[in-house]
Amino acid sequence: PPQTPIKAAMASIQQLRGDLVSSGDQPSTTLATYFKNCTIDPTQGMLKRLEMLGQTFSQRFSQAVGPRFIIIGKQRFTLGVRLYYKVMEEMLKSEEKRLSVQNFSKLLNDSTFHTSLLACALEVVMATYGESSFKAGGYNQANGSETAETDLCFPWILDVFSLAAFDFYKVIESFIKAEPTLSKDIVKHLETCENLIMEKIAWRTGSVLFELLKQEHEGGAAEQAEAPAS
């Protein structure tokens, strides 16, 4: 039978759900071992963060698409958390190979890393479900305009999690490497997010990028202080 957009979308959703069936809502034993190997166990901090971000996400989701969809928002978040754990595990495995270490205490206690990774996982879930079809509007790729209407298209998730585009950008490439089952369309979507950040969002007033560039120019002075994130 001929492939239709609906059939293609259904197949993508089935694939995503299928891939995540075995992942579970809790960290796997491998992931839990990585947490235990940390100097400071990140587990409690992660659970608290997930709870807080879950509430924020569900609230903003139902505000955007209507209170009838609050359950759907929660379902999307749950799928996002599964993908977040799955990708985190793969990232840590490849970092263990690369660095020959098992203690990732600094990374796993970095709130920005977790928020960026979860935001990317949720963006994949939302793009798979074609969440933008909930409402018209958002970023118009054809003419680069933005409408005032709120919807769930990228960069919506950055606003929900108060996340700097610059930090979201950092996880995209590693995310794609860690999750080889992502469909071509989703990879293309993440590339679109990447391009949007690089060409537009990262250069908005107040972007952390300007401060980082300033530090880079100041060079020596910045190095004398406690080494800032370069």
Binding site: L107, I176, K184, A229
Partner: peptide, 21 residues
């Protein structure tokens, strides 16, 4: 299997990008 261009040539892993190596 996809056409993504891995462009961050300087970085080798996520720890480095978050300054956590």
């Amino acid at each position: 299997s996809h056409d993504y261009h891995f462009g961050l040539e300087d970085h080798e892993g996520i720890s480095e990008l978050f300054d956590c190596e």
